[in-house]
Design a protein around this nucleic acid. Structure first.
Length: 602
RNA sequence: GCGCUCUUAGCUCAGUUGGAUAGAGCACCGGCCUUCUAAGCCGGGGGUCACAAGUUCGAAUCUUGUAGGGCGCACCA
């Protein structure tokens, strides 16, 4: 990459200056502190570095003077840099030689879909995401975490990690008990019994479908049995049907998992009992009425802790407050029953035990409050909580007809993920959720999404890809087919000298770095912005020169060099789109505005 | 009340980890198709980067405080 080469040149120059005692030796420790970036203003050359400003303190020289010193002693034997000058408060502006510029084309065309993929780094990572309760179908509230987790997994893989994707199934506890009982109530209803759904039952119609399946498979077998008999069967079928449904929708969206980890395993395999022993051995537990040191804690009267105070009967507490949690947490009720948190701690202990170098939980912001206690729980085990990274995804507010739609299971007013996909398409949905960073909370205006589904930013990028595909086809028709990477040495890339061509070459070259940055920060939107910027430059270039400097012209050598550029651009764009699991079509139907509207109405 | 998080153009959001004149899409106005896809391009208006101090060569970015929005604060999961 060009910016790496520049960094090396600057580094060698600094080293040279240190050895010549022009600069103090300590400067070597600061080599990675400066930035090299593409300039925004063409008057500033191709690249700019702030090295002189960052290091001026250490060099005990003014930024300008240091910059001059670096420029005059530049160590560039390979002649990468064509022009270099000091500007502004101490920037060093660089114009690079064409020689360096054209390297990226063969690199990209040889690497093909590997361009942007980094070599294996020997590190493994577990990405846990979605992990929706298996008590009902996925709704739009799950969409962002699903896409974000999938994208995070893909980015990390591209960055060189060995990635395992996991869905944690909460198949233990009150929610699944409620599920089983609701199914049974609906089952009775199918057999003519007039029922009154329990207050906490799930009202959704999908439960009726599950009951019908049970009826179809086993008739009235369970009608006159006690709860102890039908309960396991209702739980089993509810779990199976809901998970099947969840899995189907996710697969429709191109999201798959390597593991489905069931919470009941933690209980069956005594992991929950074991973690209690571990904590006890470390002296992290105590028996009490309530958490120590919480007496003077001020809480609002209407807070839930006040509401549920009568259910708080004391038990065994874990000293999480020692590790930054706001108070100690109960892990065993007074009757010895484990609370949810304990299973979750055992689950995370289990993740550590599996030996991953990095653990990522993709959580909705409504669960962010659990992070401190999980981290504290891991530290209490002596585990390194820095390995555990929580990607907190902000809640999406769904708007329809200008009003907020609540989509909880309880309201019965569910807007299902599968409905979203059938209305706007998976690509559009994925793009909308991934184009914003995870920490921005945003309103998803359904009407706007529907209206814009034919005029969506995802099409802008895809159209660019299709346009380049067409160009390569047109070249074949014109008997000037691109010779391809095997014969690239026959192509005179030096014919690419329009400023826009230089710019695109430099931009493409940045892709691997963008991927790394996106992976490191778990920010898929960086890829989207990169793709948009790259294709924007191409659309602009294409239109500007459509009458003067055509890509396919009578000048066969020039045509080949431009086709090489187009092929490399297309490959880069393809890699960017597929990295996020977006489709990169070879062809898109051209439609005018009116025709598009008609097509929508039809 | 406490914790986390956010506040950038009319709207939705970027801003390369502290850099040069703060950007894009949508919306609005005006232009560009006899020739490689007009799902495109070019131009225009639109900003106290919530507010106030501080840190320094330099702040939308870091620190503190204030205001406002979101989420959370049960032995539910």
């Amino acid at each position: 990459m060009i910016s790496d080469q520049i960094r090396h040149i600057i580094g060698h120059t600094l080293q040279h200056l240190c050895e010549a005692n022009v600069l103090p030796m300590s400067i070597e420790t600061q080599l990675s502190a400066f930035s090299i970036e593409l300039t925004k203003n063409p008057e500033h050359g191709d690249y700019a570095t702030n090295v002189a400003m960052v290091l001026s303190k250490f060099a005990r020289q003014s930024p300008k003077l240091l910059a001059e010193t670096i420029v005059q002693n530049l160590q560039d034997p390979a002649k990468i840099i064509q022009k270099i000058q000091v500007a502004g408060p101490g920037f060093i502006n660089l114009t690079i030689s064409n020689l360096a510029l054209y390297q990226s084309i063969p690199v990209i065309l040889k690497a093909k879909e590997q361009f942007g993929q980094h070599p294996a780094n020997g590190q493994s990572v577990l990405v846990e995401f979605v992990s929706a309760n298996p008590t009902g179908p996925l709704h739009v509230g799950h969409a962002r975490c699903a896409f974000m987790g999938d994208a995070a997994a893909r980015l990390l893989k591209a960055a060189g990690y060995q990635v395992t994707r996991e869905f944690y199934v909460n198949d233990v506890g009150n929610q699944v008990k409620t599920l089983a009982r609701t199914i049974y109530a609906r089952y009775q209803e199918l057999h003519g019994v007039t029922i009154q759904l329990a207050k906490d039952a799930y009202p959704g119609a999908y439960i009726i479908d599950i009951a019908k399946t049970l009826q179809k498979e086993e008739g009235d077998k369970w009608m006159h049995e006690p709860e102890s008999a039908w309960f396991p069967r209702c739980l089993e079928i509810g779990m199976k049907e809901n998970l099947k449904n969840i899995q189907e929708i996710l697969e429709q969206a191109g999201i798959t998992f390597d593991n489905w980890y069931f919470e009941h395993r933690l209980h069956d395999e005594k992991k929950v009992g074991q973690i209690i022993e571990d904590y006890r051995a470390k002296g992290m537990l105590y028996e009490a009425e309530k958490a120590e040191g919480t007496e003077d804690k001020v809480r609002r009267e209407e807070s839930k802790s006040a509401q549920y105070a009568h259910q708080q009967l004391g038990g065994t507490f874990l000293k999480t407050a020692q590790y930054g949690d706001e108070e100690d947490r109960i892990v065993l009720k007074s009757n010895g029953e484990p609370v949810y948190l304990l299973a979750d701690l055992a689950y995370h202990q289990e993740k550590y035990a599996r030996g991953f170098d990095l653990l990522i939980d993709v959580l909705g912001a409504d669960h962010a409050g659990h992070v401190p206690r999980i981290k504290a729980g891991m530290q209490a085990l002596g585990l390194d909580d820095a390995k555990l990274h929580i990607l907190s995804v902000q809640i999406v507010r769904l708007l329809k007809d200008g009003k907020e739609v609540r989509f909880s299971k309880r309201s019965g007013e569910i807007y299902l993920l599968e409905d979203l996909f059938s209305e706007i398409g998976v690509d559009v949905a994925r793009f909308i959720f991934l184009m914003r960073s995870a920490h921005t909370q945003f309103d998803f205006d359904l009407d706007l999404a529907l209206k814009q589904s034919n005029d969506n930013p995802v099409f802008y990028v895809q159209y660019g890809h299709a346009r380049m595909a067409t160009l390569l086809k047109r070249a074949i028709e014109a008997n000037q087919a691109f010779v391809g990477v095997e014969h690239l040495h026959e192509v005179d890339l030096h014919r690419l000298c329009l400023p826009e061509e230089r710019r695109m070459l430099m931009k493409m070259d940045l892709f691997p770095e963008v991927v790394m940055l996106a992976a490191k920060n778990l920010e898929p939107h960086r890829i989207i912005y990169f793709a948009q910027e790259l294709i924007s430059e191409f659309h602009s270039y294409f239109t500007k020169y459509r009458h003067s400097e055509r890509i396919i012209s009578d000048d066969k050598a020039l045509t080949q060099s431009r086709l090489a550029l187009v092929a490399a651009l297309k490959q880069t764009l393809y890699n960017a789109l597929t990295l996020l699991n977006l489709s990169a079509p070879e062809h898109m139907q051209p439609t005018g505005g009116d025709e598009a509207d008609e097509a929508l109405e039809a």
